Simulated scan of single mutants.
Amino acid sequence: MHPIILALLLAAEPPAAAPVPGASVCAALPETGPVARPGPPEIVAPKPTADRKLSCPDDFRLDVTGRMPMCLRAGIRVVDGSPRNACYAALPFGPIAAIAPRHKPTHSCPTSRLTTIVRIDGANAGVADAAVSVVPPDGITVTSLTASGADVDRNENPVLQGCFAFACRLVKLEIGPRAAARVELRLTLPGRDPISQAVRLADDCPH
Results as ranks from 00 to 15, higher is better:
86 A>Q: 13
45 A>W: 00
90 A>N: 13
46 P>V: 12
90 A>G: 11
27 A>C: 08
163 C>R: 06
168 C>M: 05
16 A>I: 07
168 C>R: 03
86 A>I: 00
94 G>K: 07
177 P>V: 00
106 T>I: 02
144 S>Y: 01
132 V>Q: 02
143 T>K: 11
133 S>Q: 13
97 A>Y: 02
34 P>E: 12
56 C>A: 00
164 F>H: 11
81 G>A: 14
109 C>G: 02
3 P>D: 03
55 S>V: 00
172 K>H: 01
117 I>C: 03
145 L>R: 14
34 P>I: 13
84 R>W: 10
187 L>P: 07
153 D>S: 10
103 H>V: 13
124 N>G: 02
122 G>L: 05
156 E>K: 09
43 I>E: 13
45 A>Q: 10
180 A>R: 04
158 P>Q: 01
155 N>R: 08
70 M>V: 14
195 I>K: 01
21 P>E: 08
146 T>Y: 07
185 L>G: 02
132 V>S: 05
117 I>E: 04
117 I>G: 01
137 P>H: 14
147 A>K: 13
44 V>K: 08
190 P>H: 10
26 C>Q: 08
77 R>I: 10
72 L>S: 00
197 Q>H: 12
149 G>A: 09
166 F>N: 08
181 A>I: 03
105 P>K: 10
27 A>T: 13
171 V>Y: 02
92 P>V: 03
114 L>E: 10
75 G>Q: 12
70 M>Q: 14
68 M>E: 11
46 P>A: 12
126 G>C: 08
203 D>H: 04
140 I>Q: 07
84 R>L: 09
194 P>K: 08
29 L>S: 00
38 P>H: 11
54 L>T: 02
82 S>P: 07
72 L>W: 00
157 N>P: 11
133 S>D: 14
136 P>Q: 14
10 L>T: 05
8 L>H: 02
66 G>L: 07
172 K>I: 00
19 P>K: 13
61 R>C: 00
143 T>L: 08
73 R>A: 03
157 N>Y: 06
4 I>F: 00
121 D>Q: 14
160 L>K: 13
169 R>W: 04
187 L>M: 09
128 A>D: 09
11 A>F: 01
155 N>F: 03
78 V>L: 12
31 E>T: 15
44 V>E: 07
152 V>L: 09
104 K>V: 07
74 A>L: 11
198 A>M: 06
178 R>P: 00
101 P>H: 08
19 P>D: 08
117 I>P: 04
88 Y>G: 06
203 D>Y: 04
70 M>H: 10
76 I>F: 02
126 G>V: 11
51 D>N: 08
203 D>F: 05
124 N>W: 05
75 G>N: 11
135 V>R: 13
103 H>Q: 15
159 V>Q: 12
100 A>Q: 11
152 V>Y: 07
22 G>L: 10
34 P>H: 10
76 I>Q: 03
165 A>I: 10
58 D>P: 00
77 R>L: 15
125 A>I: 11
44 V>S: 08
56 C>R: 02
175 I>N: 06
71 C>P: 03
169 R>H: 00
19 P>R: 14
200 R>Q: 15
8 L>P: 01
68 M>V: 09
10 L>A: 15
119 R>Y: 07
73 R>E: 04
5 I>D: 09
166 F>M: 01
194 P>T: 04
201 L>H: 11
116 T>P: 05
180 A>M: 06
